[in-house]
Design a binder for these strands. Structure first.
Lengths: 140, 140, 140, 140
DNA sequence: TTTT
DNA sequence: TTTT
């Protein structure tokens, strides 16, 4: 069992690359999640990193921008690599199974597309406030 | 372990009553959550019932209306009672530990309060997109 | 977003039926989950109902018995039907995506199979403490 | 919303220190969680780090050992620090709200205590398969 | 590297 | 630094 649910705002636009063999999209971003404020305490925020694969990653590239609110269901994945100094770096990120777009704002849209509208969302088969996962999208 | 996370829209205004001894608020509502649409399938929706206690219930009464989008973290609670026909009715509901208001819309507001605005939210100590839980609110 | 995680013990042996057309297995059971005990309070327990489909349901039939400890990841599903008195009954159950067997005990085994052992588990391709979900098992 | 549920086995004994001012216990460990095995794929495992505070940390020190199975409910916390080379290191860990001991094994027990038994668990006020969180334990 |  |  390894189950994560997050609701937070993108700290920057998603970064998307494509795998060389299958040209599968891989989107990465981090989300800001404010911790519950203790009385008399100051605001604190966590910034978990998120990875999304496949068609969902393509939708992230099209629709998500810095500041957008998203709901994420996924799992924690750990890894490691050796950096240029030769020491081991440990990584922890959230692999998303499902990304829901929780505000369809009209600001911060990329220039190559018009603002999201109800009709457009339906054209794309994207129900309001929900984004289905397709089996063929899951590469792991 | 008994952990539930929901994101959905209120199917009606919250119903709020107060316990007789301590005058603690108890808010009840249900949320609509669309299931992921299977290709070729038709839309289906679940309607789990939600209960909230204490100060959070008071905030639900003030700020939540039918159609609002909320994020809920809580647990499943089961119970039973005997109805007027004398047969046992089994109940299942989600007891919320945390309710987050995910859209601060300007429609459907109750008449006795003005539309939520940034400054007002800060007046109330309610951070945008998050609603802290206070220890003294938890009655269970 | 509709995400549930439970850890609890089966209140009875799973009930399994098979759909008429595709002969897909459908397993049903409920689990007992003790609530955190409040100091000075008495023990209270929730009994959510769980449904499992496909190959996972078959594994539940083979390996799960009353009293076994399971971890469940799934979602809340609501429904309704009309009973023989003609009144509408509302239902809430947890549809499991993943069922993990958390104790491989040697008691309460069905007579038609020997006690679970390490070698047998490996024969069945079931890793210890984890039960993979196969895509073809998911009927919704 | 920031919600994590894990079930996994300790990769080593918990490390416990006490804060200097309040002498609050802080336990740290990581858990091994096998990923669902893809057909034809090889086993892969994640190793998220976990932190526990207060009385629950003390219980971890007493009862948990390398190899034990635990259920954890908590949240993702990120941070950073500067290492001796002067570069920034980013950290991600799971802050546990609740730790459940899922196997009360008789091996790997520390010498200063006998094997856990039903009566002893009740003596300690620890219900079987569940470990309550006390309000005064939560330091954040 | 941090969002409203 | 990795568990059964």
């Amino acid at each position: 069992m390894n189950n994560v649910v997050l609701i937070g705002r993108l700290t920057r636009d998603p970064e998307v690359r494509y795998t060389s063999e299958t040209q599968m999209a891989v989107a990465r971003f981090s989300v800001a999640i404010d911790r519950p404020v203790r009385s008399g305490g100051e605001k604190q925020t966590d910034f978990p990193n998120v990875v999304v694969f496949g068609k969902q990653a393509e939708n992230c590239e099209r629709f998500l921008r810095k500041g957008r609110l998203v709901g994420i269901q996924g799992r924690i994945q750990t890894g490691r690599y050796t950096n240029k100094n030769g020491d081991t770096v440990y990584t922890t990120e959230v692999v998303a199974n499902n990304v829901e777009f929780l505000d369809w704002g009209d600001r911060n849209e990329r220039s190559e597309r018009p603002a999201a509208q109800s009709s457009q969302k339906e054209d794309m088969g994207i129900p309001d406030g929900f984004q289905a996962i397709e089996d063929e999208d899951i590469p792991f």
